[in-house]
Structure formats: C-alpha cells, structure tokens
Amino acid sequence: MALGLLNGLRYTASRLVKTYLSDLKHLGRRYDDALLKERQSVRGSGIFTVQYPEERLPAPENFRFIPFLVYEPALDENGQPKIDPTTGKPVIGKQRCTACGICAKVCPPQCIWIVRATTPEGKPKPQPAEFYIDIDVCMNCGLCAEFCPFDAIKMDHVYELAGYERQSHIFDIHTLSKPASYHAQIHPTDWAREEAERKAKAKK
C-alpha cells in the first residue's frame, strides 16, 4: 500500500486548487495596493507572484541598502525649498554631515572615505569636502547610520544600482546627497522620533 505517497499527492493537489481559489477570490483586484499588502502578509494564503520589475514589493521602513547623506535644502524667499531646474533635486543648503569621521571608523569593510573641508587659512571646518562610498565594497550593514550622531547618514531604499562600469559605483558626495524630505518620506517613524528629539534638545 502506498497510502503515504497518495496522501502526499492529495496534499499537492489541494495546494494547486487553493492557489486558484485565492486568485478567484481577488479576481480583478490584483493591483490593489492594500490587497497586495494583505496577500503578502502572514494572513495571506495561496501563492501570489509579484511581477517584478513591473510590480515591486513595498520595502519596510527599516529596509537598508547603500547609505545616503542627508542635507537641508536651500530655501527661497517664500520658505519653500529651491529646486535646481537641471536636476530636479532641491538645491543643497547645508549638509548635516560634520565630517567627524565616525561612520568611516565604524564601517566594517572600510568603504567610506571622507575629506574634511578646511578654511582658507588651513583650519579644519566641520564640513565634508569630499565623501566617497565604494558601493561595491559596502556590505549594507547600516552601522554608519546607526552610529551617526547628527542623523546625517541614513540607509536608502533604492536597490537597483547596476552600472556599466566600475567607476560609476564609487559614489561621490553629489550622488550620495539627498534632501531631508526624502529621508522623511522613506523613514516616517524614524523621522518623527528624530524631530521630537531635536525639538526637546532645542528647548533645553
């Protein structure tokens, strides 16, 4: 008797049916964002294939990939961020980074290179003149973001970084800099916490 074997086959068959049942239940609502979230969660059932790259799974807030530098955008006379017409990105007002070098020291594969800016007299200034991350070396551990005392370096959500030549994988300060609003958008919880801390500090 091959009862165990037949039982197994029954299980496989039931799985096949279940998958279609789940698809039928959600017929026509495939591209519903809320639904996609539910079907991918612990409460979802059946197999749901995300059609990458047409569809993408939402990245959780803590997701970490290649760091970026946070800058405060320059403001125009109305108090709105100035937009650079050529790049479409807000103009850099002030880098949060003070070139203290903690991220370069904590980095396990040592992929961060920082050149500290100097005044014309040659005194060091709390500002980065150059900031490089070799993203081929970066291991996405997130320690730089975790230990930055100025919330100046954060982990990004962008994970499609293929390039045609190696030199394009050495990110300089221009590639790395992203406005604070971008950080607020991808890390809403962290952003709220950091803002609250900053306000509490300013009150003191």
Binding site: A99, G101, A104, K105, V106, C107, P108, Q110, I112, W113, I114, V115, R116, P124, E130, Y132, D134, V137, R166, I170
Partner: peptide, 15 residues
Amino acid sequence: KPFGSRWDQGYHILA
C-alpha cells in the same frame, strides 16, 4: 581597522 587613510584626507583609492 579603522584604516588611517579613510579620514580626514580620505580620497578614494581602488584596492
């Protein structure tokens, strides 16, 4: 580690 060449004159050099 940390390597001295990373900061504060850390110009990137390929390995």
